[in-house]
Design a protein around this nucleic acid. Structure first.
Length: 729
DNA sequence: CTAGGGTTAG
């Protein structure tokens, strides 16, 4: 500012003869506006337009230094007033507006200019790209050509980015052609690397490589663009080769290159190369750079070494938004949701602000933990940061509410999104699927074509799952058949498993078995699904066939043996059960104990099946349980001892039924929230059993409260004696 | 006077 003032003063003194005294001028010098008026008006008393324009030029410099838009506008007014548009100062003012960050004023002036310098064209174009107004940038570049101004190397080096951002493959190729004609493609590495980047972003690595090969003086930027391109296309080994080629050419990698190549290593899950690069980073002195540390952290996380990620993070002096976010992502992806949440709290306490990346990862942590309350707090934060309509945050919220059993909330978030993409629709379909709203899921699936969205493999899986959970066999078969006929979506074993389950569960076991035989390499999941369906329908013969396949494919699989022993138990074949159990013991397999838990007032209470004494409130829990059992019996509940998988007398079977973990959790929750009318949400690690299912239906009627149970497979919404799953799961 | 590449997400 002081320098600016001094310069200005000297200018003013040089061109004015009638300044009364210096002190007056200095007084006015606080405001450029005043100076402009004083000085210019003074100079008008006898100096040439050329001198005025020189004064304006220096004023523009001052405006740029001060980033002052208002003062630039004053200069603008004077330029108009003195008819200086044709002078170079007008072009300079355009630049001044751009540097003050006001592209609108710049454009207005730009359009008024009788003559535009190539530099001004280029500045306008690159500013538009910087402001993510790529359409304008492309339009200007075509306009300059039509007005007879030939683009130069500066134009090309920026404009290709606009084409790639807009996905204009043909436009980009045409511009490329022009750069070749003008001889700029290979002679200027800026143009070359911008081209490589554009083709890489289009996923056309063949063309990108061809351009790169032609560029005469390759540099680190060009190689980095290539590496990123190959990595994003999934060609990790090629990315590594390019990196090696660059090193061999004696070109030094910088922080940008290291960041990119670390992502490559992370995708490769190759710790050896990753550590090698880590060493190179230390050697080249890029270790203290935050971006390098961020990529290192991510690399270790992708290789499964999340503790090393934490170690890297400790060395970061000033973690920024991206560093914090990467750490949270690393933790969530490695199943450390609680740690992720505590890091998020720390992030909030620091000066870093969360963005939609951060919040969607935190939401993912909440949904994995089924933390509805915590998730709602994050939702509030999403709203606070104005990210309600963001696709990523939105999909994460839909997923959260879906996983917490609030389909309505999921839908209202979904409806508020601006423009859906496949993933947001997928989350909504999946939310419906989990909660048993099959028809809603199918409806949305069919609506996709009106939204111009192509379903992908996840969509199909979600909608089939929805059919599964709502017993919509015909609908499921129809969708499956049409997708199979269409052949645009590659059906995986997961899709087949879903169909095997759907057919098997409703007793169409032969069709299910036939379907498995149509899969090229049926895996253990498929056969186990069939086995499980056989258990439901007591189909021992087919079950033994399926068991044989399962044991061939996965001899030590725990679930299978549990399934088979359950099958024998449900058909009363106790000698076989005993045999299965001894096989399981030999294989050192143990049945996963059934657990249920419930979150009340931000505290989680868990209950194990058969364990009615561990909880500090077990006395009250058991009293409530006894009360509930008496009440539901009046309404017609009959204990269904077929679900007891041990051979014991009827009375003991009943006892063991009563102490199922979900019953304990619900009894406790009802006692604890006696005076409330809120919905009760319980979670179970295994599937809810048939007896509990019917018991909970009665309980929902007795206490007049909604009960939502999420088991290992899906949600059940119990209300007024009915369940959303329609007794099919 | 104007220019190119990187790190975080479902």
């Amino acid at each position: 500012m002081v320098v600016g003032l001094a310069k200005l003063l000297s200018f003013a003194i040089a061109i004015t003869t009638n300044v009364p005294n210096m002190s007056l001028l200095i007084k006015h010098c606080r405001f450029v506006t005043c100076i402009a008026q004083n000085a210019i008006e003074a100079s008008f008393n006898g100096t040439s337009l050329c001198e005025v324009s020189r004064l304006c030029s220096s004023l523009i410099k001052l405006c740029i230094e001060k980033k002052s838009l208002t003062e630039a506008r004053v200069v603008h007014a004077h330029i108009i007033k003195f008819g200086l548009l044709r002078f170079s100062v007008a072009n300079k003012l355009t630049d001044g507006y751009l540097k003050c960050g006001c592209i609108f004023d710049a454009r207005e002036l730009f359009d008024e200019l009788p003559e535009r310098y190539i530099v001004t064209w280029n500045s306008m174009i690159s500013s538009y790209i910087g402001k993510r107004k790529c359409k304008e940038a492309v339009l200007l570049s075509t306009r300059m050509v039509s007005e007879g101004v030939l683009p130069d190397e500066f134009t090309f080096s920026s404009v290709f980015k606009a084409f790639s951002e807009l996905g204009l493959v043909n436009g980009g190729r045409e511009a490329h052609g022009m750069s070749v004609v003008l001889g700029l493609e290979v002679s200027n590495v800026f143009v070359g690397s911008a081209l490589v980047d554009m083709y890489a972003k289009f996923g056309n690595m063949k063309e990108a490589q061809l351009v790169a090969d032609r560029v005469t003086c390759k540099d680190v930027v060009l190689f980095t663009a290539l590496i990123v391109g190959y990595t994003q296309l999934g060609d990790v080994s090629k990315a590594l080769t390019v990196f090696g080629d660059m090193i061999n050419l004696g070109i030094y990698a910088n922080e940008y290159t290291f960041s990119s190549i670390l992502i490559t290593c992370g995708n490769l899950e190759d710790l050896r190369v990753g550590k090698l690069v880590h060493g190179l980073i230390i050697k080249s002195g890029f270790e203290p750079v935050v971006a390098s540390q961020t990529s290192l952290l991510t690399m270790y996380a992708r290789c499964g070494l999340v503790n090393d990620s934490l170690k890297v993070f400790k060395n970061v002096l000033h973690p920024n938004q991206v560093t914090w976010t990467s750490l949270i992502v690393a933790l969530v992806q490695n199943g450390k949701e609680e740690v992720a949440l505590s890091k998020f709290k720390k992030m909030i306490r620091s000066s870093a602000l969360p963005n939609s990346f951060t919040l969607s990862s935190v939401l993912q942590a909440c949904s994995s933990l089924a933390m509805l309350e915590g998730g709602k707090q994050i939702h509030a934060m999403v709203a606070k940061f104005g990210l309600d309509r963001d696709r990523y945050a939105g999909a994460a919220l839909v997923d959260l509410y879906g996983k917490c059993g609030s389909t309505e909330m999921a839908r209202s978030v979904f409806d508020a999104l601006v423009g859906f993409d496949v993933v947001s629709v997928n989350s909504m379909i999946y939310a419906y699927a989990q909660n048993g709203f099959g028809h809603e899921a199918i409806k949305l699936f069919h609506q996709m074509k009106y939204l111009n969205l192509e379903p992908n493999d996840v969509t199909v899986l979600s909608v089939l799952l929805a059919c599964n959970n709502a017993a919509l066999v015909e609908e499921g078969c129809q969708i499956f058949a049409s997708i199979r006929k269409d052949e645009t979506i590659e059906l995986t074993r997961d899709h087949y498993a879903c169909m095997v389950n759907l057919l098997g569960r409703c007793g169409r076991l032969e069709e299910a078995e036939m379907l498995i035989k149509q899969v090229r390499n049926p895996d253990v999941v498929l056969w186990r699904t069939l086995l499980s369906a056989c258990r439901v329908h007591g189909e021992v013969e087919m079950a033994e066939r399926a068991l044989k396949r399962v044991v061939d494919l996965a001899p030590e699989d725990e679930g299978t043996h549990v399934l088979m022993s359950n099958l024998y138990a449900s058909t009363g074949n106790w000698s076989q059960v005993i045999e299965m159990k001894s096989t399981m013991r030999e294989l050192k397999l143990k049945k996963n104990p059934a657990m249920s838990w419930v979150e009340i007032d931000k505290e989680v209470h868990s209950f194990m099946a058969g364990d009615c004494w561990s909880h500090p409130r077990s006395k009250e829990t058991l009293e409530t349980l006894e009360y509930l059992i008496e009440k539901v019996k009046i309404l017609g509940y009959v204990p269904d001892t077929r679900f007891v998988l041990q051979n014991m007398d009827e009375e003991n079977k009943k006892r063991s039924l009563y102490y199922h973990s979900e019953k304990l959790a619900i009894a406790f929750a009802l006692w604890k929230t006696e005076n409330r009318t809120t919905t009760i949400r319980i979670f179970k690690n295994l599937k809810v059993c048939g007896d509990c299912h019917s018991w909970i239906k009665f309980v929902s009627k007795v206490v007049g409260r909604e009960i939502i149970a999420r088991d290992a497979k899906r949600f059940h919404h119990f209300k007024e004696g009915l369940c959303s799953c329609g007794d099919y799961w």
